[in-house]
């Protein structure tokens, strides 16, 4: 069975709904341009979307055709992105993380300070934890529903916070190349800054 890399992105409802979706879309488009099989979708259990509720966005990247295409949740993610660090305080974002997984958080804090919100079981599986000040790099958080629930996105993909997060995820995990991410994101500058300015703490 071909290896499928699963990405789960946590964001706050309405405010970061598009940005969370953009992280997945930028990563999958970058991987698609590299010739991989990809899939990006929202979590349906989190709906209806309410302001500041925790929502999940998913992406799958694979070398061969994705076998679990119609499973609607990533229960065993390889990479977890958190668009708002406060979410980690109330919920175990790393639940079901696979061994050697990565955690990338949008925060101005150091990665060491946020490690306390990860329970022991998941902490052992983490390969690296990283922080990027995505809100400082790209402060736009566009509220736009055109791309929700599988519809076509009329606004550009990766204009704000999402592009910096996608750059950081690519830098930490290496699932896609730098050039691919910069090409996929509409805001090339912030994707590049996210890629370069991410603070990584390797745990094992």
């Amino acid at each position: 069975m071909a290896k499928t890399t699963e990405v789960t992105v946590w964001a706050t409802g309405v405010v970061q709904d598009k940005e969370g979706r953009d992280v997945c879309l930028v990563l999958t488009e970058a991987a698609f341009n590299e010739g991989k099989f990809t899939q990006a979708f929202d979590n349906y259990v989190d709906l209806p979307d309410r302001i500041n509720v925790q929502v999940r966005k998913y992406a799958r990247i694979s070398d061969a055709e994705i076998e679990n295409k119609f499973e609607y949740e990533n229960h065993r993610p390889n990479i977890v992105g958190v668009c708002e660090a406060t979410i980690m305080k109330g919920i175990n974002v790393c639940k079901g993380l696979q061994d050697g997984g990565y955690l990338i958080i949008n925060s101005t804090k150091k990665p060491e300070d946020l490690l306390k919100y990860v329970p022991e079981k998941e902490k052992k599986r983490l390969k690296a934890i990283a922080c990027v000040d995505a809100l400082g790099i790209a402060p736009e958080q566009l509220i736009d529903y055109s791309g929700a629930e599988g519809a076509e996105d009329v606004s550009a993909i990766g204009l704000g916070l999402g592009s910096a997060m996608a750059g950081a995820i690519a830098a930490v995990s290496g699932i896609v190349k730098k050039e691919s991410v910069l090409g996929a994101a509409a805001n090339r500058t912030s994707a590049k800054r996210g890629y370069d300015e991410v603070k990584i703490k390797v745990l094992k």
Binding site: K89, N92, K95
Partner: peptide, 12 residues
């Protein structure tokens, strides 16, 4: 995020 406690931690 600047406080230590105050939020009930849910597993999922």
């Amino acid at each position: 995020i600047d406080f230590e406690d105050g939020v009930p931690f849910q597993d999922a």
